[in-house]
């Protein structure tokens, strides 16, 4: 008789895979990517492609030649890191800078820790923050949305809503004086404003969130707790002094808040494992973001807030246990 398979139970599997989840997130990013190409033109496409190719290539080379492992670039995680890195930089960023960012993201952010599943910090954010500190000028020179444009780099540049606000407040102006130079809510919803290439289109990002929730790729806990915390905390500050602190809706729609809450903070590897932990993590990110934005020197605080909470995640996992059966 032929040989039978012998294994402990269970003998069936739910057919979920790592790559299904990774590609699921990539699909969720498509609407925001389309918006970005519409507003920033072909340069968005060039930056994203460069970033993805660089991330995949660096991961392949590191696994093949440095770690002597079987390369696992097909799982889609390097592609995802590439797309998220690109979404977090201005669309006119020089190609060589993007490649450095990709090398830091994959090389330092991910592979030094042991590759997929072992990293403590979100690789795309490690790359992004490295670039922000190393190339502050290029990283904060945002092209204005000009409608679909086939040229690269030479677009007209301008500030983001958050940097207009921060500079204005630092210069002693009040919010009502700045109101005219800030983008309108409907432009912010669609993404018709300056900013990193993937962060501007609020509605497209929310569409991505809905898709990921329906597909059960992520749960609501992290994005909702971040958004609710930012709304409530910035709302309290706004009610205290509306001339000094901008309204909560502006906070939610500006900068990397939605991109961060929906796609960066929800990174499986670097976020907590339990529902309670996820809520604490989300509240932490929300509080830190508003503190950095409203009281710090940087106009934007999302990346730092997520990285700080990434560092707290092991501690959260240690103390936040799931609801036990009894």
């Amino acid at each position: 008789m032929k040989q039978l398979y012998v294994a402990p139970s269970p003998h069936v599997h739910g057919s979920d895979t790592v790559s299904k989840n990774m590609y699921g997130v990539l699909i969720a990013l498509i609407p925001a990517f389309i918006c970005s190409v519409i507003f920033f033109g072909v340069s968005s496409l060039i930056v994203t492609l460069t970033s993805v190719i660089a991330c995949v290539l660096f991961e392949y080379l590191i696994q093949k030649f440095l770690l002597k492992q079987k390369p696992s670039v097909c799982d889609g995680s390097a592609i995802l890191t590439g797309v998220l890195l690109a979404f977090n930089v201005p669309s006119n960023l020089p190609i060589w800078i993007i490649m450095i960012g990709a090398l830091v993201a994959i090389g330092i952010g991910k592979m030094t820790f042991g590759g997929l599943g072992s990293n403590i910090f979100n690789p795309a954010l490690v790359g992004r923050v490295f670039l922000l500190i190393s190339f502050p000028v290029q990283m904060t020179t945002w092209p204005k949305p000009m409608g679909f444009d086939t040229s690269y780099v030479d677009a007209e540049t301008g500030a983001t809503a958050l940097s207009i606000l921060k500079e204005g407040l630092m210069g002693g102006k009040s919010i009502s004086e700045l109101q005219a130079s800030l983008p309108q809510v409907n432009d912010m919803l669609l993404g018709n404003m300056g900013g990193s290439l993937g962060e501007v289109a609020a509605l497209a990002l929310i569409l991505g969130l809905v898709w990921m929730l329906i597909k059960r790729i992520i749960t609501w806990h992290i994005p909702v707790s971040i958004i609710a915390t930012v709304f409530i905390f910035s709302g309290i500050l706004y009610l205290c002094n509306p001339e000094q602190y901008i309204c909560p809706v502006f906070h939610l729609l500006s900068g990397g808040l939605l991109l961060g809450a929906i796609f960066m903070a929800t990174d499986y590897v670097t976020s907590p494992m339990t529902k309670k932990g996820m809520l604490i993590y989300g509240v932490g990110i929300g509080l830190l973001t508003v503190i950095i934005r409203d009281f710090g020197a940087f106009p934007e605080g999302m990346s730092f807030a997520i990285l700080i909470m990434n560092a707290v995640t092991p501690l959260i996992n240690r103390y936040c246990k799931p609801e036990r059966f009894a």
């Binding site: 790592v18 989840n21 696992s72 799982d75 599943g117 907590p272 494992m273 339990t274 799931p322 059966f325």
Partner: peptide
Amino acid sequence: MHPCIKCAKCVSACPMGLE
């Protein structure tokens, strides 16, 4: 088999509330 990606799906699936 792949490395654990900490997706927490096992934690959500456990009927005894374990990790």
